[in-house]
């Protein structure tokens, strides 16, 4: 497959978040594997920020890279962390002529066989959610085209992840909405049953329901549901004291 075709396929794949079985780890694995293929590099990995605010190594295309990334997170130094902190690409870092920015990281990376490391941010506008890390075994620079491709992959994956998160939040809120509405509906139905059985208007039927719930330290919806499903009859509710 041509590089262009592979890039296009990768972008389409990364953008495809509307499928029912969307999985963030699958997406990140695809992102890392395709970076290795398209950019012709030794390894690629992704770090994402967890809800608690700390950066985590989510996926690495090689076990050797994983070791270096974990070291980076423990020692809190390296190109991926700088990239995440600044939200800017940290590129063309030849580790053999390290300028002393990341002495610990450079030593571990070199010992593992890597000679160069780059990182591009996973960012949407001001929100930085992580970094895409690109490791090479040969020193030297990535081309501008390679960097543009890497940033495009990171951008699409970021949007996919943020969309997925927002859909998950919407799901939770929608479930809460339906739950709250079903509780309210049960209460209205019980009011109707009490009103009809006891010859009350809706206001007094509700007062009777609420009074009973308070007296017995039960939730309104619990008493209402018992009336509606027939486990309690309206006549068994405490009478209103006048």
């Amino acid at each position: 497959m041509s590089r262009e075709a592979l890039m296009t396929r990768t972008l389409v794949k990364l953008a495809d978040t509307l499928v029912d079985d969307f999985d963030v780890v699958d997406l990140l694995t695809t992102l890392a594997d395709r970076c290795v293929e398209v950019l012709n590099i030794a390894a690629a990995g992704i770090m994402l920020v967890a809800p608690e605010g700390e950066l985590r190594a989510m996926t690495s295309s090689s076990e050797a890279m994983r070791v270096v990334e974990l070291f980076e997170l423990q020692s809190l130094e390296g190109p991926c962390l700088d990239c995440y902190r600044t939200g800017q690409p940290v590129v063309n870092n030849d580790l053999t002529s390290d300028d002393g920015r990341w002495p610990g990281f450079a030593a571990v990376a070199l010992a593992t066989g890597f000679r160069a490391a780059d990182a591009v941010p996973m960012r949407l506008r001001r929100q930085v959610i992580g970094a895409l890390n690109l490791f090479r075994t040969e020193p030297g620079s990535l081309t501008d085209d390679d960097l543009i491709a890497a940033q495009a992959f990171a951008d699409i994956a970021t949007i996919a992840i943020l969309q997925h998160r927002s859909a998950l939040e919407a799901q939770v809120v929608n479930d809460q909405l339906n739950h709250a509405l079903n509780s309210r509906i049960a209460i209205e139905q019980a009011k109707g049953m009490i009103a009809e059985r006891e010859g009350l208007d809706m206001e007094h039927a509700f007062a009777r329901l609420r009074n009973h719930a308070r007296n017995h330290n039960e939730r309104l919806v619990t008493v209402a549901t018992a009336i509606v499903d027939g486990t309690a009859v309206p006549g068994s509710l405490d009478p209103l004291s006048h």
Partner: peptide, 16 residues
């Protein structure tokens, strides 16, 4: 408009 009156009426009709 959550149609609460419809649910109240359902309760009444279920008894009727």
């Amino acid at each position: 408009n959550f149609q609460f009156a419809v649910h109240q009426a359902s309760g009444m009709v279920s008894v009727q």
